[in-house]
Amino acid sequence: MQDTPNTPAQPKRPVRRVTGGVATWCRDQLARYVFLAVAFSATVSLLLIALFILKEGVPFIIKIGLKDFLFASEWDPSVGKFGIYPMIIASLWVTLGAMLIGAPLGVAGAIFLTQFVPRSVMRIIKPMIELLAGIPSVLYGFMGVMVLAPFIRNHFGGPGLSLLAGAIILGIMVLPTVISISVDAINAVPRTYLEGALALGATRWQSVHMVILKAARSGIIASVILAMGRAVGETMAVIMVVGNAVKIPHSALDSVRTLTANIALEMGYATGLHRQALFATGVVLFVVVMILNSLAMAAMKRKAGS
């Protein structure tokens, strides 16, 4: 990941001692290729997944027409209507909402844990936060259905199973990602930065938000990107709390269906064109995630460069 343009040249491979003989050399070569294969396996599986989804989904998009697929708002496979516009909007809103909740809370939590709490306390709290990541998403969904949805219904109105419920649940689910990566990023800032700021007369809070956050910026942005990836892709918890109505939401209290929920709900019985439509939904999801990641990465690169 880290490119090193300043290093003059790659150091030459150390000269191999002849003492080992041919057998050792063979073993070395074997190990080298085995590890090479392992290193490539991730790339290869990514390629295979992309190829498979594209192969199943792209012919459908060509047949229906990109415009009628992406920007039509009628989804009724039984009569041949395959518009996923409401789901794209829903996915974007749910993700945005989750980020509005998860990112500030997560970053604030990371600042608190690293700057305003003794190390010993942090050593207890941080693993507990990371445990949050290990809770199965169906349990988050269950909590959403049993606690959050009734709360929203009783206090704000609407059916309760709504965009807002999805955003809140996802906002909580991404907290461990945001917090633990942000904590690592902040901890990587050299201690002298803080000491320098304090020595110049900055208050604790000034030195945190003017110096430490600036220095740790790229890591914090990375944590938000990863969290966004999780939020877009999360399926089970979302299916349980958003109500899955296919329509463009007019308020946060409306029920919506995300792209992932659409695939998971209908894959079980879809055949023929309908099944292809779900793969095409997968293609769109794939592209949306790619666009989000590239945008975020570009932003990160620009900021890190300035």
Partner: peptide
């Protein structure tokens, strides 16, 4: 109706 909540 499009407002219907869908459960599986």
């Amino acid at each position: 109706t499009k407002d219907a909540i869908i459960q599986d």
